[in-house]
Design a protein around this nucleic acid. Structure first.
Lengths: 119, 119
DNA sequence: ATAGTATAAGCGGAAATGCGCATATAAGCC
DNA sequence: GGCTTATATGCGCATTTCCGCTTATACTAT
């Protein structure tokens, strides 16, 4: 019960839904998330952690990078259609699409993208 | 998007999940909910309102009574299996079952049950 | 070692939430 | 009309949430 409440809490935030939507396209490190969604590092990190704690994300550390990706099993533990529901709810929402270019740019730049892309 | 956040918010509270679980068995008026779950009138009323605002409940007024019941369409707008998920998550949880007797009692007593059953 | 980079975490404040107490509202009953 | 009852709501407070600022940590590169 407490666990289900926690899962719903994790989902009841716009930033986290945007993150989920982004990660559904492909796994990202923290700095890619902050670039793509145009949010602060603290905000990206904290909300990724929250989703991870709720069991919705997998984490793989690679050097300086923390690579987060969707944990399908975790996402569908309670709702077999949760992934589709989130995707559908964000459909037509330009929030993620808008920044796709920045995301590609961050990917291209690689480590150092945070400070280098700030300007 | 905002709407989906609102729906998740409504679900991310233990009291509200208990209420949903109760209403899945059968529609209840506010005083039956407070009796069955042993919560205050304010708490029952407020949380029922929240679930109603989120589109999960239907409301029928009958004299003094406000009869709330599950709105299947609202519940399954995003998640076709939401009803089952909540039910399953609460399975084995004695919280509701414990008070089934009080609920029957409230139903038997009818109007006046709040004050009469307080003693 | 020194400097740079990505991420996490402590701290504090602003805002939102949950809820008890009291009161308001509205319907029923005498 | 008054009295009772069921429900909703305003107010205030405690708690939680969110997040920016800053600092800590840990890995990389030179």
């Amino acid at each position: 019960m407490r666990e289900l409440v926690k899962a719903f809490k994790a989902l009841s935030d716009e930033t986290r839904l945007r993150i989920l939507s982004l990660l559904m396209e492909r796994g990202c490190c923290v700095c890619e998330v902050m670039q793509a969604l145009d949010i602060s590092q603290t905000r990206a990190s904290r909300n990724l952690s929250a989703l991870y704690d709720a069991g919705f994300l997998k984490l793989r550390k690679d050097g300086l990078w923390s690579l987060y990706s969707i944990d399908r099993d975790g996402m569908e533990k309670y709702f077999s259609n949760l992934v589709d529901a989130v995707r559908k709810a964000l459909e037509g929402n330009k929030v993620v699409d808008m920044d796709r270019e920045r995301l590609r740019e961050a990917e291209r730049v690689g480590p150092g993208c945070v400070t280098r892309m700030r300007k």
